[in-house]
């Protein structure tokens, strides 16, 4: 199964070129975040590198506060999605009751309703609940997740039915079985879904833009937009420093869990 050397060279050349192109914007932003404004404006190669831009970004904007908010909101959404999706998936796999299939189709149907098409009433709901500028308003609407339910359902289906039956004979109830067997057995896919939920929540844009009006719960994405609108004309180094701060947590998370994420998402995507 070894590849001839000529073929291997072709692949490596392709890999390096495409890899460079895909990574270039990120790399460029990273380099720029350490460059002086003068070098950027004149388009020269960096003559000196410093943390000045980061110092400025943190000094001029409550970036730490934004990071903290994003972290809280993403963690809340992640937990909410894990709990709700795993409960629902359990019902679809291990419980038999009238109307189950109908409800399953209802869950599928939710995938066809784009959140963007229902932001107007949702905005009003949040406003009427007094959840504008609150963590609840930014997290709770995203707790129920059809995709997560399918992904976990797929995984729970691989748990042998006999495990449930053995626990039935031992006299164990459904909720206890869910807690003490199903969740520990499928921790890998829970982790996958958790990472996915955290990533997508961290990167949310439209909803935090609408549901925050001040810095108290504003997320780092909206912070970055503000940084950009206010600094646009003069200081690209600071903007890039802000952008790098925004992407570092998710990139690290992605690098750590890339393999699991890939397997998990493929499983969930294809029944």
């Amino acid at each position: 199964m070894t590849m001839p050397i000529s073929k291997r060279i072709i692949f490596y050349v392709l890999l390096f070129i495409t890899g460079f192109i895909v990574f270039a914007p990120t790399l460029m932003a990273l380099v720029m975040s350490f460059m002086s404004n003068k070098d950027i404006m004149t388009g020269s190669f960096p003559t000196m590198l410093s943390f000045d831009n980061y110092v400025k970004a943190f000094g001029q904007f409550p970036l730490l506060k934004y990071l903290f908010n994003s972290f809280i909101i993403s963690a809340l959404i992640m937990l909410g999605q894990l709990i709700l999706s795993s409960l629902a998936a359990y019902a679809f796999v291990f419980l038999e009751f009238k109307g189950r299939d109908l409800l399953f189709y209802l869950f599928i149907a939710t995938m066809m309703v784009p959140f963007e098409a229902s932001i107007i009433p949702n905005f009003h709901t949040i406003r009427d609940l007094g959840w504008i500028d609150k963590y609840e308003g930014l997290s709770i609407p995203f707790f129920a997740l059809a995709f997560g339910t399918f992904l976990l359902r797929q995984n729970f289906k691989q748990i042998p039915k006999e495990l449930r039956e053995a626990s039935q004979i031992a006299g164990m109830g459904d909720f206890k079985f869910y807690l003490s067997v199903v969740l520990p057995v499928s921790r890998t896919s829970l982790l996958t879904l958790g990472v996915y939920g955290f990533l997508t929540s961290w990167n949310m844009y439209l909803w935090p833009l609408l549901a925050t009006t001040n810095d108290s719960v504003r997320t780092v994405q909206i912070g970055l937009k503000q940084l950009q609108t206010q600094e646009q004309l003069n200081d690209w180094g600071v903007i890039m420093a802000g952008a790098i701060i925004v992407v570092i947590p998710t990139l690290i998370l992605l690098f750590i869990s890339q393999n699991k994420l890939q397997k998990g998402l493929t499983e969930g995507a294809l029944k």
Binding site: P160, E162, L163, E165, A166, I169, V181, P184, V185
Partner: peptide, 12 residues
Amino acid sequence: SMVFQNYALYPH
């Protein structure tokens, strides 16, 4: 008590 074909042992 019951013994299953695949043993139904809890893997964790």
